[in-house]
Write a protein that binds this DNA or RNA. Structure first.
Lengths: 216, 216
DNA sequence: GCATATTATGACCAGGTGGTCATAATACCT
DNA sequence: AGGTATTATGACCACCTGGTCATAATATGC
């Protein structure tokens, strides 16, 4: 594998950089890693194959480059998410809303994330997932623990299982919103207020459970 | 595409049939549809390429054949699942347990299901998922509705969202159990009693919610 | 034993893949 | 303008893919 030369890539017009990156992102988001074709990427970007390999060295190098950009976007999104109100369930709401925002802003990136999640032999898969999910396992995990300790949520089940339940709801919610798979619940294309209504229902269930009767 | 000839396949020794099928199942479970290689399958099965195409006509034909077997196993599993006890949450427990049983019995089939779930351009994907998930969308959906109507579970949220929540927990539970992805909760390799304990916790959360205090 | 029908085989095909590299084009400096 | 360093290009490579088919092997019927 020839060594990549990111410098040459960065010397390009910003527009051309964007076109190339976007072509790669679209291809990876549609095909995942293994099925993605460098030929299609260069065709879409309007550059020669030699150039692509000059910039990124290999298919793997290009993919890692794209993933780095992705991670950067995720970090930005997490940083700028603001929790509206106090308490554990306000946090849950905030995460749901900022997740939806992220999918709206970068739908292709989200697709790449999903593809990588369920594809084997993707270069850097482990590290990539770890970094993307860092939020869940660390930030959210700590939040659950803190909420338990301060008595905001029940203490008679393990923090592990609390986090698991919250994650489960998040995962399926975002998956439904992105419209992937044969989902029963249609979230994609809903208006702001309708979506808010769905979130309220979901948090109500998470908070008070499915059993009959109110929260107390 | 030459027409397939299942008859010729069925005329084979039962053992040879099993070897061929198993080779295909293993390949599809590891690689999904697109990445799966007919060459690898025939090599693993110890038959010639021509024979495989004689039996099944095409890669797609082979895949559909494998999927049919899968569907049959799912139907059997659903049929033989017995609900221990009464009420909505006994049903939830039963589904979790029989799901775990299925994954133990047919781990490769479950992997194929996961792969198909998140892969595009898989022949018969839509119908396959519909048939596998028929249980969720129909049986379980009706059960939720019935439980609401008879007052077993709360009525102030939509049936749709109830089913959504239950599905979310199921999906992540089975995914964790199968050990796919970078899961925080380790379920795979747990003993019977430890697993039962996890299920109890999970159902408790589903039933009573995360908020402080008991179910009433 | 012979003739016929069925089944097995793998060399072969067109097309796609990631990757290379001699050559051409361009930019830059004096 | 001339010379040098950088960048762009696409024909080409080895390899793999799903699929075919003439031929060989085998089973069957008489």
């Amino acid at each position: 594998m020839r060594k990549e030369n990111h410098t040459t890539f960065y010397n390009l017009d910003t527009d051309k950089q964007k076109i190339i990156l976007q072509s790669a992102i679209v291809e990876f988001s549609r095909q995942g890693y293994a099925k993605a074709s460098c030929n299609r990427i260069v065709r879409a970007a309007g550059i020669s194959k030699g150039s692509l390999f000059q910039y990124f060295g290999s298919k793997e190098g290009l993919f890692v480059f794209v993933c780095d950009r992705f991670i950067r976007k995720v970090k930005d999104a997490v940083k700028h998410a603001d929790v509206d109100g106090e308490g554990f369930f306000a946090l849950i709401r905030a995460v749901l809303i900022s997740g939806v925002d992220f999918i709206d802003s970068y739908p292709e990136y989200f697709q790449i994330y999903l593809k990588v999640m369920f594809e084997q032999d993707v270069p850097g898969r482990g590290e990539f997932l770890r970094r993307v999910c860092l939020f869940s396992s660390e930030y959210l995990g700590l939040a659950c623990q803190a909420a338990q300790e301060s008595g905001l949520i029940r203490q008679d089940v393990s923090t592990e299982m609390i986090l698991f339940s919250v994650d489960a709801v998040f995962d399926k919610f975002f998956l439904s919103y992105a419209g992937t798979g044969a989902q029963s619940l249609v979230l994609h294309g809903l208006g702001q207020s309708e979506l808010q209504e769905k979130i309220n229902e979901l948090v109500a269930i998470l908070e008070q459970g499915l059993a009959r009767g109110g929260p107390n």
